[in-house]
Amino acid sequence: MKHKVEIFYAILSETASPEENFQFQELMKQKDDLFLFNQIKKIWDEAREVKNFRSYDAKRAFYALSRKVEHKNQMKRRYLLVAASGIAAGIILMIGLFGLMGLPQMNQQQASVVFETETGNRSVIVLPDSSKVWLNAKTQIRYDADFGNTNRNVYLSGEGFFEVTHSSKPFIVNINDFKIQVYGTKFNVSAYPDDQLISTCLEEGKISIKRQGTKELFVEPGQLIDYNKQSLVFSLNTVNPEDYSGWRANKMYMNNEPLQNLAKKLERKYNISITFSPEKLGDEIHYSGIFSNESAEEVLDAIAIASGLEYTKNGNAYTVRSR
């Protein structure tokens, strides 16, 4: 005799033979079997409803959330120097000493918008869809004028960190014959033309990488995908994604802080001494911006020009005064 559940299955799937039908009718006269049937039927019916269920990784998500909570707290304390240019294509946020170390160059050709950073300069742009891109030095990013309307295609040469907003339109980073398709996420791409590797590191979310003629490769958070342009080989490593986007905040980061603070940082970093004349100057003038690998004098030059100061040098001792 078949197991009862198999008879129930035949009934539920409407494949029961006359014999099975008969057996089923007999079983339904028993209270216990009727009860069992109802349980099985509930499993059968509801199983279809869990078709799209999956296990979401709560531990990973909690880690991400913790970082967001932390980040929010930090954001309350600091905000970025923001310069907004009224450009139809979008708002540009620039961090850094624009005008001194070079504005990201924006050219509006007929059909596309281009941002470029020069050596030693970084910036952040906000695309028309509110996605943010941090550009490392010597990087160019271009997007079509109809970005956001019909597509979200950007073309990258150099290194960028992307924080992409969610939308039904796919966001695609094009690097020659390479496409990185984005599903709402944070990741870093390094694709300098003179480098041998194209490195993509995912911090959060979902992306896929596809080279023309190959299969789409999905990347998980914390994975670093290197593509060797010479050997045409992909390699995959698990890394701390922050190591790959650390350049963004590298490293001297000023938010409306008195010059005195900057002076201290410079003193520590370059083993020099800086005095202000008069002394209160150091507290009176506030400054916002990011410095990275500039020399001490480059930084001082930048500040001098921006704040109407001048400095004199005696060995390793610098004195800053009003002009």
Partner: peptide, 25 residues
């Protein structure tokens, strides 16, 4: 509490949003 409800709630949100990434968000 988060770990107790995260996956069930994501599945619930997915029913409406049909997108697991937005659901998690």
């Amino acid at each position: 509490l988060f770990e107790r409800y995260y996956s069930p709630l994501c599945n619930f949100a997915f029913r409406f949003l049909k997108d697991d990434y937005i659901a998690e968000d």
